[in-house]
Amino acid sequence: MDSKKQTQFATMAAQARRDIVRMVGAVQSGHPGGSLSSTDFLTVLFSDVLRQSASTFTRDAKGADAFILSAGHITPIYYSLLSLNGYIERDELATFRKFGTRLQGHPCIHGGVKGITQVSGSLGQGLSCAAGLALAKKLDKEDRKVYVLVGDGESEEGQIWEAGIFAAHHQLDNLIAMTDWNGQQIDGPVEQVGGMGDLKAKWEAFGWNVVVCEDGHDYAQICTAFDAAAAASGKGKPVMILFKTDMGHGIDFMAGTHKWHGKAPSAEQVEQALAQLPETEYGDFKF
């Protein structure tokens, strides 16, 4: 991939990581771990893949690609990317999780935030909603896709697999799901807590086309995965991209552990984290 794009992604992702830490630190609550693991591929999705524009966004996603965040707790990265891609003002991030905010702890539609298509928070439900949107696009003969992000821990929810059966049975090949395969959940490593096993084999057994991205923090590999997913779509099967990632990626003391799933850094830790992340041309949002 060209180095210009590589730099663009890296810059946006660095700013997003700064945002995540500052947002969660400011209210001493929120979910940095999964936000940081999904930062890189969501940066690519929002800035380069999703055919959706901030200025023409409508909830019904008519004529555009749709995105559903099923793992609703990773709002820090979601809101940061909405701000970095022009859906909301940068400084609105300062209201995150505060009383009266549109940027609720988990996504809500009531404030009319551009870029939010459906509420989420109670896990396991977004894939079904995305399947419904994909079905509607097929019925309306709209050549657009529906993207949805689920967590690997979230995939312990039975409804994920109900949706998996449904989407394959109805040949929703305009549906592209993504799993943030970070291997961690609240109580510990996924393999110790829920034991998801081989997600690739599971999704293939459910009749999906599966793309595995071995390094979900490498932009070249991420772009290759999205390209492969686009190529695999339209062929009678829904597509799952499994992004192998590290929870807490990009901040040394948060990386590779479940401990920062839903824990806020102290003021001192925020400074320690920011020291590891370059300032960017976007600038930090203001409190």
Binding site: D60, I68, S128, C129, A131, G132, A136, K137, G158, I165
Partner: peptide, 28 residues
Amino acid sequence: PERYVECGIGEANMVGVAAGLAIAGKIP
């Protein structure tokens, strides 16, 4: 027939699918 969707025995998924259809402007 094109507006009838058999969801199989998965009521939870059916609720979500209906929500997605409704967001897209259908009346499920």
